[in-house]
Write a protein that binds this DNA or RNA. Structure first.
Length: 425
DNA sequence: TCTGGGGTCCTAGGACCC
DNA sequence: TCTGGGGTCCTAGGACCC
């Protein structure tokens, strides 16, 4: 059996933990740059504020209902996530952290327990220990567990836990479940389902396996099996090394000058390099992209990217910034109002053993020592305390986050970052 | 006129997730 | 005025191998 534990309205709940006066008050959390609504408290959902909606379109609704608005605070959410996961890990020998606010628990070996009771204990203690309300779905496959967790959230009577452990319950759950809410059904499959008169999860299970295979490939076939109670999606508790690493941001304002955009790209490249070192990897290929604002219909549009294979794979910050600079130089064209830039590491390999270059001019041993010291300093004092000059301090590219809450869980670095700004002067 | 069989690897594009 | 960011997996088709 699989259990899926899912935090309720996670980002909104994180904000509430440190500001209990917000209980019962509608809250929304905005994406980077204060762009779109990415989390809503139940009260905000009831007001009809949709997920993913641009904030400016919701302004009237937000103002007239005194909705409290937050810019996203990922440092805080990441930290709260760690607390939740740590608590969950005390209940089972094996779990898989599926996203910032969800984890699958492996329940094999717990058959002797009343899973309903066990689930409620997990929900109760996790909420008590962290302040974050959670729900749990339990079933014989991951897809059914996801479904169960939605029921647990939707109906108060479940007390936070829904268990699908009999054929009767499975069929009933499938029949009442909108096909659009099934794990793995996105926009395009939703249309396909609609076109074929499939409205519930049950309807899909009534199609033949070959129909599903033909119209939805092997992905759909797995989904079909999972809904029937045949597990196809295994637990994966191993730490997964990323196959692709990307850092990109929209700018707070439009930028036209090369050096302003390069400052942003430098920071994105540095962040990619740090992420590479964190997972003990090197970049063997990378890509830089820039784009104008696609929503500004009447502005001239320009989107471009360029890819590069590295002769010696590296995770060295200055080196990666240099490559990024030359790529940016190749694609930058003056005269456009740029809105977004990003760096993507496309080919990732382990940092050891590494194929060296006979004619390499860089003393990599020495560089590695330097980077270790920099990572150590930044880890203790706050990220980017020590930085490459081209990363700059102009902050012209910095995004809007006018309504960010405090860094309640990571105060030390906050204090030191203030000092860093003083030093900058 | 007639032109094999069995593979691997890579990429772009499309689908999905949170 | 204002529209996020970071990932994974699958498939078809092309290039190549023997």
């Amino acid at each position: 059996m699989y259990g899926l534990v899912d935090c309720n309205n996670f980002y909104a709940s994180c904000e509430r933990v440190f500001n209990p006066s917000l209980n019962g008050v509608p809250i929304v959390v905005l994406s980077n740059n204060d762009g779109c609504v990415i989390a809503r408290s139940n009260e905000a959902k009831l007001l009809g504020i949709p997920m993913g909606e641009p904030a400016f379109k919701m302004k009237e609704l937000i103002d007239s209902n005194q909705v409290v608005v937050f810019s996203s605070n990922y440092t805080l959410y990441g930290d709260m996530s760690n607390r939740v996961m740590k608590t969950l890990s005390t209940f089972v020998p094996s779990m898989e952290i599926y996203s910032i606010d969800e984890a699958f628990l492996h329940l094999n070996g717990f058959e002797h327990l009343d899973l309903d009771v066990f689930g409620r204990k997990i929900v109760r203690i996790t909420t008590k220990n962290t302040g974050i309300p959670v729900s749990m779905g339990i079933a014989s496959t991951k897809t059914l567990a996801k479904m169960a967790s939605k029921y647990a959230k939707k109906y108060k009577g479940y007390q936070g836990v829904c268990v699908i452990d009999t054929e009767e319950k499975r069929i009933k759950a499938l029949q009442k479940f909108d096909i659009n809410d099934v794990w793995g059904v996105g926009r395009s499959y939703a249309k396909l389902m609609n076109d074929h008169g499939i409205h519930t999860a049950y309807d899909l299970t009534q199609r033949t396996k070959s129909w599903v295979r033909k119209n939805m490939t092997v992905v759909g076939e797995r989904m079909w099996n999972e809904l029937q109670g045949i597990a196809c999606i295994e637990m994966d508790s191993t730490f997964a090394v990323k196959k692709q690493i990307c850092t990109s941001r929209s700018f707070g304002t439009k930028l036209t000058e090369f050096h302003d955009i390069f400052e942003a790209v430098s920071n994105h490249a540095a962040s990619c390099a740090t992420k590479l070192r964190c997972q003990k990897s090197c970049a063997a290929g990378m890509l830089v992209f820039i784009m104008t604002n696609p929503f500004a219909e009447y502005d001239p549009q320009y989107v471009n990217s360029k890819h590069l294979f590295l002769s010696v794979p590296t995770n060295n910050t200055p080196e990666i910034i240099q490559y990024a600079k030359s790529l940016l130089q190749d694609i930058y064209k003056p005269g456009y109002a740029y809105k977004k830039a990003g760096v993507i590491i496309t080919e990732i390999i382990p940092n050891s053993p590494l194929q060296a270059d006979l004619f390499d001019t860089i003393d990599r041993g020495k560089q590695d020592k330097l980077l270790k010291v920099i990572d150590g300093l930044n880890g203790g004092l706050g990220s980017n305390m020590v930085r490459i000059a081209s990363q700059g301090y102009s902050k012209k590219w910095k995004l809007k986050n006018e309504k960010q809450s405090k860094r309640y869980t990571t105060k030390l670095s906050e204090i030191i970052e203030v000092k860093a700004d003083d030093l900058d002067v």
